[in-house]
């Protein structure tokens, strides 16, 4: 157990170190002055430049520079944005939770709709209801996410006028960001008309969540269905049938858990797709998340922001992936044999 934890933390640490190195090298790879790319500060004269160079140890060898860079990152000193001039840590601190919030709701939608539907389709495999569920999920899965989101905007926002077009919450409500999750923040806030604010936040959330969630749900249905069908044809299910167990007993005691085990690592792979989709959809819905923020940074050639944004997003993805895999590892008894942590 402790050995497993140590292995996974080593894996996480090393991966993050490699990521930090890549983000550091971006300062040199981007066009322009590495000093400016790294700090986001534009020195006004030579004296200031020398002072900054000394402060960030850019006069030393690359290794020293890199260690200093990691030190700065850990201390929360991430540099400043070219465009806004604000500390990047604050900007990411507001944008990243918004994306995570969106992705979380989409993931919850996938879990609570996708997995039960997948189980249902798998248990009734090759029946009409299975074919309906399966073909719907394949169709949904094949939608490009930006097109699907545009379609939702077209139908629900423009034609039916039942959902707001963009943003996170109406400007009427002033929500203090505490956790960065809008729903939690509203609940924590001292607002007079919380129910109204909640309703408004939900109507803003509905379309982007649906756009991202539909595709994740579709892939979840397909993964679950396949896994259930695989498990159903294993000899131990036939053995359980021959022992005269009822179909409920067989489902709950033997199929449920065994089908869930291969789903979890595939879910970890889905996280990457989910975050990418979230970033695309954010741009369409002007959701103030990290994707939207990064796209703006690209337009503005805000190199420090790109460097930090890449680091932040990949850290989230890697950490989640490793955590899911660790969890899977801990609950699966038959994986004791594999000593090394893998993702």
């Amino acid at each position: 157990m402790i050995q497993i934890l140590i292995r996974y933390s080593t894996l996480l640490f090393l991966t993050l170190l490699v990521l930090a190195f890549m983000s550091f090298s971006l300062a040199y790879l981007f066009p322009g002055d590495p000093l400016e790319n790294l700090t986001g500060l534009v020195p006004q004269n030579e004296m200031q430049r020398e002072a900054l160079t000394r402060q960030f140890k850019l006069d030393g060898p690359y290794l020293i520079q890199f260690f200093h860079y990691v030190e700065n990152m850990l201390a929360g000193n991430w540099g400043y944005s070219f465009t806004s001039g604000l500390p990047l840590r604050e900007e990411v601190g507001i944008a990243l939770p918004a994306t995570i919030e969106l992705a979380t709701y989409a993931m919850l939608m996938a879990l609570f709709i996708g997995i039960p539907l997948g189980y249902y389709a798998g248990m009734r495999c090759y029946s009409t209801s299975d074919h309906v569920i399966n073909s719907t999920s394949i169709t949904t899965y094949s939608f490009p996410v930006f097109w699907f989101a545009l379609l939702l905007i077209l139908i629900f926002s423009l034609q039916l006028d039942s959902a707001p077009l963009s943003g996170r919450i109406s400007l009427l409500y002033d929500i203090e960001p505490i956790t960065g999750f809008i729903i939690v923040d509203i609940l924590l806030s001292e607002l007079a008309n919380k129910p109204l604010a909640l309703k408004d936040a939900f109507s803003h959330l509905a379309l982007p969540t649906l756009a991202i969630g539909a595709i994740t749900t579709a892939s979840m249905i397909r993964i679950t269905r396949r896994s259930v069908i695989d498990v159903k044809h294993r000899p131990y299910i036939a053995a359980a049938v021959s022992r005269g167990l009822s179909s409920w007993q067989i489902f709950f005691r033997h199929i449920l858990r065994n089908a869930l085990l291969p789903i979890l690592p595939l879910m970890a792979i889905q996280i990457t797709t989910l975050i990418t989709n979230a970033m695309i959809v954010e741009t369409l819905f002007s959701w103030p998340g990290i994707g939207n923020w990064l796209i703006q940074a690209i337009y503005q050639r805000d190199y420090p922001a790109l460097r930090v944004g890449m680091m932040a997003v990949s850290t989230v993805v890697i950490t989640l992936t490793i955590l899911v895999d660790l969890f899977n590892r801990l609950i699966d008894p038959s994986r004791e044999k594999y000593e090394r942590a893998t993702v």
């Binding site: 000899p235 131990y236 053995a239 005691r253 038959s334």
Partner: peptide, 10 residues
């Protein structure tokens, strides 16, 4: 085949 006729997760 006992190994495959037993549920691996129980």
């Amino acid at each position: 085949n006992p190994q495959s006729s037993l549920d691996p997760s129980a």
